[in-house]
Amino acid sequence: MRVANRSPRAVIGTGLKYVVGFLACVWMLFPIYWTLTTAFKTREAILGSTPVFVPTLITFEHFRTIFSGSVDIQANILNSVLVAVAAVGIGILIGVPAAYALSRMDVPRKGDIGFWILSTRMAPPLAILIPLVGFYFAAGIGQGLIGLTVTHLLITVPLIIWIVKGFIDDLPDSLEESAMVDGCNRLQALRTVVFPLVAPGVAAAAFIAFIFSWNNYVLALYLTTGESATLPIAVSNSVGTYSIQWGQLGAAVTVTILPPVVLSLLIRNYLVAGMTMGAVKG
């Protein structure tokens, strides 16, 4: 179509579309852009009376400070990784078989069990935390990473069960049946046919669960103290105690959001399924 043939209305419409799109993208991106650039700006550029939109002078000083200087968040990163990996690992270990059973096997009151698992994810975890803390102290764990990991299972297990169940539901039954007619028992059919085919789904579920565990703030707020603090706790603690070191804050935020953003983009095709516990297929 030639431009000359377009009606004025169509031209305005197209123009408007670009403007709306541009504004929406700015709205979505600017906070991230601003924080990322702040992490690389010099103190002068950050505190100057005119904001620097495109930093010309780039410094890694803030990253040095948070990794080896006065703040040192390395231990906190390690804590976060430990808790998330453990909670996701256990979640996969116990959640994937449960997902398979719920999807394929003749489990009595299957629907009710499924809904119950879903509802455990809906309940605000703080309400559950009050009595759990009592248990942890009684068990001698108290505040710390073990208690936090156990509590994070509340995040990872239902998530993994429902996401993986969705992926298994999508697989035709006849694949396992064929394998079982062809000489496998159910476990062997699972290993040779089902697992290889749902592996991407399991990976997606693991990544999503990792992100939710990594991002969690409120459980760690009470359950961790001092050196057991996870990254979100450490980052938030750096604010407000005395005058805020904005550059360090920007650097810490950058480090915090990097894993979830990278993982999410890796599983972008499964993101909707993951975020909705399998209710929406991407």
Partner: peptide, 29 residues
């Protein structure tokens, strides 16, 4: 491209989101 951009804010750790906004609405800077 636009889809990736539109998804990004959701991927940001909530605590980081909060800090980003504090940075942007801070009284002095």
């Amino acid at each position: 491209i636009v889809r990736t951009i539109f998804v990004l804010p959701m991927l940001v750790t909530p605590i980081a989101t909060a800090l980003m906004w504090r940075l942007m609405i801070d009284g002095s800077i």
